[in-house]
Computed example of a mutant assay.
Amino acid sequence: MKKYITFFTLMFVIAITVPFSVFAEENNNALKLAEEAKSAILLEQDTGEILFNKNDQEQLPPASMTKIMTLLLIMEALEEGKLNKEEMIRVSDRAASMGGSQIFLEAGEEMSVNDLLKGVAIASGNDASVALAERISGSEESFVEEMNKKVKELNLENTKFQNTTGLPAEDHYSTAYDMAIIANELLKYETITEYTSVYEDYLRKGQDNEFWLVNTNKLVRFYPDVDGLKTGYTNEAKYCLTATAKRNDMRVIAVVMGAETPKERNAIVSGLLDYAFNQFETNKLFDKDEKITEVQLLKSKKRSIDIVSNQSVSTLHKKGETEKDITTEIVLEEEWDLPVKKGEEVGKLYVKDGEKILSEVPLTVEEDVEKASYLTLLKRTMQEMAKIR
């Protein structure tokens, strides 16, 4: 009888051990190549938590991953109404003269913002990048100033841009960490993946100079759920890639810099994505633009102001772990300097595990907040006085 008990006990131990051993081995293999990378990082979007990093602060040439910042400023201009997708842009001599990857724009040609955006996001067109930069800022040089200004706004200490394209230039550098942060900021404009996820498309469809766009990021086609973001290559930078994928409400960003071959680059990123989706999951607390709270403002035209988060809010944990005791704390500005523009930060949402702050998320106003007129203020003041009596 004891022999049977021992046999079944052994079989049970094998049954529960083998899957975990295989699972652990798969995760080790997924990270093996990443450990050998020159520079790499894996970031979860909502929490900003770093799941893996290797030399992520090393300053390296980012090549065409530079265009992630270019795309960020383009999306900002669209959001702010400084640009619209249907607008036709006349291509300058300078934009048409850009070398490297291009969509072969001709000087004097007119192309819509929407098609130029496709040219940048899908085909990494240097000419399209410069054409859009010149339209937004007047010149590429002025646009680059805005790029570096944005770097400072994001508190990035190891990035400096000299052009919009990533073509080789002295004193043009970034890091895996900084590229992940810029990518995270770009992905807040959720429509960007409508461009970066496209594997192939056409420009000038049906015309003699029709151009076939093919995404430089092959993982868009060959890795499930990858919907961006940007490749890069120069002789100095080697093969680079910032990729993003979303599965079950969890979006992650993987960056690799300095790989020797495109195959190695894609394998490292694929391994990082495998690791993220095999090991971790998120619990969503709030959707992007969901109302978090409201505030009553005596001096605003509209008395009740909705406060929202400009990004989705989640917690992150390893699969199989019990959920943490999560709480949230809202801290709003005490004094408001009206008017306040839509999207302007007016406070923070803190996600906590006990006293430990897991993440802090900017809170913004859902719409423009205008000053109340003198008559409205007088009326409200009298109402408040009547309540006191």
Rank of each mutant, 00 (worst) to 15 (best):
Y4A: 14
Q45R: 15
Q45A: 14
H317D: 10
D368F: 11
S142A: 15
T322F: 12
V256P: 00
M65P: 05
I41R: 00
D325K: 15
E49P: 03
E236H: 11
K218T: 10
S373D: 11
G166C: 06
V269W: 00
S359N: 14
A63G: 02
D325M: 08
I5P: 07
I268N: 03
V144E: 01
A77S: 15
L132K: 04
A37T: 02
R389H: 10
M179T: 14
A77L: 06
L363M: 07
D93P: 06
E290S: 10
N217G: 05
T164W: 04
I292D: 03
R303S: 11
L33R: 11
A63Y: 08
L156W: 06
A267R: 10
N278R: 15
E344T: 14
I50G: 03
I5R: 14
L377A: 06
A34I: 04
F211H: 12
L71H: 03
A243Q: 02
L375T: 12
H317F: 08
S112W: 03
A96I: 01
L332K: 02
A15Q: 10
F161T: 02
Y199S: 03
S373M: 08
K205T: 12
D325P: 07
V120Q: 01
E294L: 05
G125L: 01
E106T: 09
L213F: 06
N55S: 09
K2A: 12
K238F: 09
T328H: 11
K352M: 08
V113W: 00
E110C: 09
G100P: 01
P262I: 01
L116Y: 00
K299R: 14
N184P: 06
C240A: 04
L229G: 04
R303F: 15
K342T: 14
K218H: 13
D208V: 13
K3W: 12
R251C: 04
S39Q: 01
K288N: 12
H317C: 08
K150G: 02
R247E: 09
G119N: 04
H172M: 01
I181W: 03
K85P: 07
V91N: 00
A123E: 08
S137N: 06
N27V: 08
E334I: 03
E294V: 07
N53S: 15
E80S: 13
S312N: 07
V308I: 15
L363F: 07
V365S: 07
L316V: 04
D249R: 12
K324V: 11
K379V: 07
